[in-house]
Structures are given as C-alpha cells and as structure tokens.
C-alpha cells in the first residue's frame, strides 16, 4: 500500500447557495465550516478578516454552518439568527457581529439592538429563529461538511481541498497562494 495522504475534498461545490464575500471568479477560494459559539472559530475570525484584507479581490470567502449543538447550546440559535438576517440581505454584518460578540451569545435582547441598528425587521427575525425557519439549510451545510471530512470547527477548505494546517495568518496565506498557482488538483504526498 503506498504511503500517501490525500486530504478530503469539498463534496458540495461552492455555488449560488453559499454566503460568499469577495470576487466570484477569484483564484483563491476559502471555505470555512464554523460554529458561532466555538471559541476556536472566534479565534479564527480575525485571522480570516486579515486574510481577506491581505488578498483583496484575489480571494473569495465562503462561510457554511457547522453548529455542534451538544457542546454549544447557543450555536444553533446563532446560526438561525445569521440566516434570518441573511433573508433580509444582512448575512455578513450579522455573521461578523456574532463573532465579535461571542460572549453575549444567546442574549436575544443584546442582538435585537444591533438588528434595529441594521434596520432589520426584528419581529420577523424573532419568529424565524423561534420556528427554526432555516434548519434545513443549516443541516445541509452541516451534512456537506460531515461528508467532506469536517470533524470539528473551524475547518477550512482552500480551492476545494481541506486545509489541515494551523488556522494562522501566515500559513493560510501561503497555502492560498500555492493553491492559486495550482490549477489542477495535486495530491499531497
């Protein structure tokens, strides 16, 4: 048996269904599977922001939900909140606000203030979250992660291949740049 290792690949390609920042035709595509209540995702959040700033229009960033609700009781509430904001065109502001305010996770009143500031329909968000209106989408994200080798959060994919390095600025930027110069898939040996 050859001693090779091929990192898992993204089974659900990035598409119109996704929450995406940056140019659709960017040479570097970074996908994160994240949980809003996960402290490691909270730590990775500013790293991703810095990477986006560094790479600019060469990068497309996609976020998919991977709420681990049995360890993080507010993770599903948070994912539903972000999706409900998305329905009103404000996914990324809410995504960012959730990560910037992880310690207030689950405090609906605290988030309502921000929703009002964003001029969102707060009542509608409250109803949708209570009804788990976006649970099918969140579950689709989750299962696409499970089938792509996401075992915990955060898990990143760079141009469709799981990134197994540390979630650090330098190593991720290097990996993204290498991937952008590798048009076809190349198994790491």
């Amino acid at each position: 048996m050859p001693k090779t290792y091929t990192p898992p690949r993204l089974t659900l390609p990035v598409g119109d269904r996704d929450h995406s920042e940056g140019a659709p035709d960017a040479s570097m595509v970074l996908v994160e599977y994240g949980d809003y209540q996960c402290p490691y995702c909270g730590a990775a959040y500013p790293v991703v922001k810095r990477i986006e700033k560094e790479l600019g229009s060469d990068l497309r960033f996609v976020f998919r939900n991977f709420p681990l609700t049995n360890s993080h009781p507010q993770a599903e509430w948070a994912a539903e909140t972000a999706e409900a904001a998305s329905a009103q065109g404000k996914f990324w502001p809410m995504h960012d606000f959730l990560y910037e305010n992880q310690r207030f996770m689950g405090d609906a009143a605290y988030f309502t203030v921000y929703e009002t500031k964003l001029k969102l329909d707060v009542t509608r968000i409250g109803q949708e979250v209570a009804q788990r209106a976006y649970s099918a989408r969140i579950q689709e994200d989750f299962m696409s992660g499970v089938r792509s080798g996401v075992n915990g959060t955060p898990t990143f994919f760079i141009n469709g291949i799981r990134y197994d390095g540390a979630p650090e600025f330098g190593s991720m930027v290097s990996a993204l740049k290498v991937a952008s110069k590798t048009p076809r898939r190349r198994a790491r040996t």
Partner: peptide, 10 residues
Amino acid sequence: TDQLGLYAQV
C-alpha cells in the same frame, strides 16, 4: 469529545 459529539449529532 469532538469525535463522539459529532456522532451524536450525525
């Protein structure tokens, strides 16, 4: 913890 928690969720 991660592994078994994931199985619970799947």
